[in-house]
Amino acid sequence: MNSSNKTVAKRSQRDYTMGFKLAVVAQVEKGEMTYKQAQAHYGIQGRSTVLVWLRKHGKLDWSKPIEHSPMSKSKETPA
């Protein structure tokens, strides 16, 4: 029996064209998929790669933290 040695070349960030990055960012920003779904769908290995693309190339403002509802700051307990 001959075992075949299949080597899978890991993709680096240099493999992704600007057009590909922009297409993934557009899909995530439109709500077609989450960034984690995009990673799985396109085989993107880095856990934060898509997030970096969103911050660099996306149209959303990442400079301000998200405001949570006032209920989360309430000290009252529900009845």
Rank of each mutant, 00 (worst) to 15 (best):
E32H: 04
L22S: 07
G46C: 09
E32M: 07
S3N: 12
P65T: 09
K36D: 08
Y16V: 01
K21A: 10
M18H: 05
K56M: 11
V24F: 07
K56W: 03
W53D: 03
M1Y: 02
S48W: 06
A38R: 01
H68K: 11
S12W: 10
M33W: 06
K56N: 13
K73A: 14
A38P: 01
V25M: 03
A9C: 02
V50G: 01
Q39L: 09
A38S: 04
A23F: 09
G58D: 04
L54E: 05
G58F: 04
N5A: 14
E76N: 07
K10C: 06
M1A: 13
N2L: 10
R11L: 12
G31A: 07
K64T: 14
E76C: 04
N5K: 15
A40Y: 04
V28C: 05
K75R: 10
T7P: 00
W53H: 03
G19N: 13
T34C: 05
K64S: 12
K36Y: 03
T34K: 06
L60V: 10
Y16R: 02
Q37K: 11
T17C: 11
K30H: 13
E67C: 08
R14D: 14
L22Q: 15
F20G: 07
L60C: 07
L22M: 11
V52N: 14
K36Q: 07
G58I: 03
Q39P: 00
A9G: 04
R11Y: 00
V52E: 12
Q27D: 14
S69L: 06
M71H: 06
K36P: 00
G19F: 00
S12L: 14
K64I: 14
V24A: 09
H41C: 01
L22K: 15
W62S: 13
M1K: 08
V28P: 01
Q45V: 06
G46V: 06
R11G: 01
K10Q: 13
G43P: 01
Q45N: 08
G46T: 07
S63C: 01
L51N: 08
S63M: 03
R47G: 11
Q27M: 12
K73H: 13
A38V: 02
S48M: 12
D15I: 01
S12M: 11
K59C: 08
D61S: 05
I66A: 12
A79D: 12
P65K: 11
G31V: 05
K56C: 03
M18G: 03
Q27F: 00
E67F: 04
Y42V: 00
W62F: 15
E32Y: 03
Q45I: 04
S63L: 04
Q27I: 00
N5H: 15
K30G: 07
D61N: 15
V28W: 01
P78H: 04
E76A: 12
I66H: 13
L54W: 05
N2R: 13
M71S: 08
H41M: 04
H68L: 15
L51F: 07
K64G: 02
K10L: 14
K6F: 14
G46P: 06
V50K: 01
H57I: 00
A26V: 02
H68Q: 10
M1D: 08
S4H: 13
K75T: 08
G31M: 04
T49S: 10
